[in-house]
């Protein structure tokens, strides 16, 4: 397993698109948060954190595309044949990809989210600063959700064997529930749709239902469930299918 991890690590970092994607994810996450913090007035610590994290609304799309590309590009250029010939244990292969991708996105988002939050605290004068442990939790929840979104995309791309299709599907899963929920008048359904959507773990000014309860670890659990389901489906089809 160590060898597979090492190989996937080398593979991931030896293409420039990984660098560009991560830089783009970090920039849009920080930039979106900074723009919203500058535009919108926050008067509570929670409101401030929400505004600071709004860049995630953009960053998650970049991260999803990165996750889908992690395996989808191999299908596109046929490299998957070489990869599976080198590592015929397909479950370990997908696991290694998930670990490398998840770890990378986690680290990048921790940087981006901490920077966004610090910037928002510096920028806002009338809202109380979040407690240090709340701030750390916010950053960790956001980073965990982003990493899980990348894994959701990885699993989806494994099932569909296409980066583009998987990216479209995952972006649909992320952005459609809040859009469709806005059309639902029944508040119970609105909350249900928002709570069980993969975006529920992301703390943003929108998308956490009418109650606007703060994103909790249980909503990170919802994203984790989506990611695990996608990876499970991906692993199943990777094992069952001919390459």
């Amino acid at each position: 397993m160590r060898a597979v991890l090492h190989a996937e690590w080398t593979k991931q970092w030896s293409v420039p698109s990984t660098w560009w994607s991560l830089i783009a994810a970090i920039i849009v996450t920080i930039g979106g948060g900074a723009a919203m913090s500058a535009l919108v007035h926050a008067d509570t610590a929670d409101g401030l954190a929400r505004l600071a994290m709004s860049g995630v609304l953009l960053g998650q799309a970049v991260v999803a595309a990165l996750g889908a590309a992690a395996i989808g590009d191999e299908y596109a250029n046929g490299l998957i044949v070489t990869t599976v010939a080198a590592v015929p244990q397909r479950g370990s292969l997908l696991a290694a990809k998930a670990v490398v991708l998840g770890g990378t996105v986690l680290a990048a988002t921790i940087i981006a989210a901490s920077a966004s939050l610090s910037w928002a605290v510096l920028l806002t004068i009338d809202a109380p600063d979040p407690q240090p442990d709340t701030a750390i939790q916010t950053v960790l929840k956001t980073a965990a959700s982003m990493a899980l979104i990348a894994l959701l995309a990885l699993g989806t791309a494994t099932v569909f064997r296409s980066t583009a299709t998987a990216t479209g599907l995952v972006l649909g899963l992320l952005y459609l529930p809040p859009l469709l929920a806005a059309l639902i008048a029944d508040p119970a359904w609105q909350v249900r749709v928002q709570r069980y959507a993969p975006m529920s773990g992301v703390l943003t000014p929108i998308g956490n239902g009418t109650g606007r309860e703060p994103a909790s670890w249980s909503s990170v659990g919802v994203v984790a469930t989506w990611a695990v389901a996608a990876l499970g489906a991906g692993c199943h089809s990777l094992k069952r299918r001919d390459v």
Binding site: M36, L39, V40, S54, L57, L58, A61, V62, A64, A65, A68, A69, G72, T163, A164, A166, T167, G168, L171, Y175, P178, L179, A182, P205, I206, G207
Partner: peptide, 29 residues
């Protein structure tokens, strides 16, 4: 790149719409 084009188009249309129609953003923005 298909994935990049898809991401850019969806993010450029859906995210502004989502932000604009959700209560939270100042009306002018």
């Amino acid at each position: 790149s298909g994935a990049t084009a898809i991401t850019v188009v969806i993010v450029a249309t859906v995210v502004p719409y989502l932000l604009a129609v959700s209560p939270g953003l100042p009306t002018v923005a």
